[in-house]
């Protein structure tokens, strides 16, 4: 068996508490990721976003990341110098965030931003860079790449903004994409387009994907395997298409709490929060 793309053992992310102690927001997380699509689901405060950031070492002090193993393509990320880490971010592991309006530079054209993402990692000639940018825009199904490349972020819609973000993240051809709530700022019809696009690019290029979301249905639709997180821990791991057969009471509780399109229940079952969080 080949080595996994990403291997995480006993990952902990902690923040200081007022009383001088530390609180683990990610508390002993372990998983292996191959060239597959892994979903991480959980509610606010479950530690799902911190997991994504910890992999890229983007947790700022006073936050602290510890792991007995955090290896990407066989390389130990915990001991890598900040300089090597910078070279790795974007080039080999990329991240798409929630809202394109806050992730794109408002005073730089779309084309220049995408070109910059490529140039930082792969120096090519001007003409070659431009050709790659236009090709990439076409890959994210932007019909008129020349025109869009000359636009500023405020001139594009939310869905197009997110497609531009994806273009920017994929142009250096990374082997792992981390997408943190990539579509929760978008309308439902645009959501499906953006996720479908991301999915086909990830599969077409044989990449690994970590999709972080609070939306169980969405993750089930676009992933192979799912980790369900609560209070910093994985409560359940299952195959995405078997999500309906999940056994852990927290997962079952979450599934039951979502209203359905063919709703017939007079009341929605709610989680007994005291059992999980003590609030």
């Amino acid at each position: 068996m080949t080595a996994p793309l990403l291997s995480v053992r006993d990952l902990r992310v902690s923040f200081p508490r007022r009383d001088g102690g530390r609180i683990n927001v990610v508390d002993g997380l372990s998983f292996d990721l191959g060239r597959e699509r892994l979903g991480i689901v959980g509610e606010s405060g479950s530690g799902k976003s911190m997991t994504g950031r910890a992999i890229l070492r983007l947790v700022r002090p006073p936050g602290r990341v510890e792991a007995s193993r955090l290896a990407f393509e066989g390389e130990d990320l915990t001991t890598l110098s900040e300089r090597r880490m910078r070279a790795l971010r974007g080039a080999r592991i990329s991240m798409v965030m929630q809202d394109p309006r806050y992730s794109l530079n408002p005073v730089m054209t779309v084309g220049r931003q995408i070109a910059e993402a490529l140039r930082v990692h792969t120096p090519l000639g001007r003409a070659a860079t431009r050709a790659r940018v236009l090709q990439m825009l076409q890959d994210v199904r932007i019909n008129d790449p020349e025109r869009v490349a000359a636009m500023y972020p405020h001139e594009v819609s939310g869905g197009m903004g997110q497609r531009i973000m994806i273009a920017m993240m994929l142009i250096p051809r990374p082997s792992l994409l981390i997408a943190d709530e990539p579509t929760s700022a978008l309308d439902v019809s645009v959501q499906a387009q953006v996720l479908g696009l991301m999915d086909s690019l990830v599969r077409g290029n044989g990449m690994g994907l970590i999709l972080i979301s609070h939306d169980l249905d969405l993750v089930a639709r676009y992933c192979d395997r799912i980790l369900v997180m609560n209070a910093g821990r994985v409560v359940e791991t299952c195959e995405a298409r078997r999500l309906g057969e999940a056994t852990h009471p927290y997962t079952r509780g979450l599934l039951a709490a979502v209203p359905r399109m063919r709703e017939t229940r007079a009341e929605l079952p709610t989680l007994d929060r005291r059992a999980w969080e003590g609030t």
């Binding site: 606010s44 609070h214 979450l254 709490a257 709610t270």
Partner: peptide, 14 residues
């Protein structure tokens, strides 16, 4: 709101 909280608020409104 989170889905579990959403369920509580929807029940309340109903």
């Amino acid at each position: 709101l989170d889905v579990s909280v959403q369920a509580e608020i929807l029940n309340l409104l109903k």
